[in-house]
Design a protein around this nucleic acid. Structure first.
Length: 105
DNA sequence: GTGCTGACACAGG
DNA sequence: ACCTGTGCCAGCA
């Protein structure tokens, strides 16, 4: 088996660590995580999620406007409904109510 | 070293 | 709600 996805560098490891701390029903934007870490930028966080996101609650990391990552909307919606994440739109375009769901940490 | 691409953010049309 | 351009940072051919 192998470790299909596993962070090899410190930054990725730290990003995943933060994502792992986001409580159910809450979300953080890519930019929020970057700011929270005080390093890199939203695109870097996005890259980490795209590469190693498979091992964490990736659906809790979304864009600043509340839209889930492209190609995973359906999967993300299922999790939101399951966790009771505040939604602004429960059908495409799926949008999380950032005002209420945003988690500061 | 150069240039394109990307699970982004923000402003404008 | 959608598309476009600009800025930012890092990975990859």
């Amino acid at each position: 088996m192998g470790a299909a996805e596993r962070p090899v560098d410190e930054y990725s490891s730290r990003v995943l660590d933060v994502v792992d701390e986001i409580p159910p029903g809450r979300v953080m934007s890519y930019g929020d995580i970057a700011e929270y870490l005080g390093a890199g930028g939203p695109r870097q966080v996005g890259r980490v999620m795209a590469t190693f996101g498979g091992g964490v609650a990736w659906w809790r990391v979304i864009r600043a406007d509340g839209t889930p990552p492209p190609g995973h909307e359906s999967r993300a919606l299922a999790h939101y409904l399951d966790e009771g994440t505040p939604l602004r739109s429960a059908r495409p375009p799926v949008r999380v109510d950032m005002r209420r769901a945003r988690w500061d940490g």
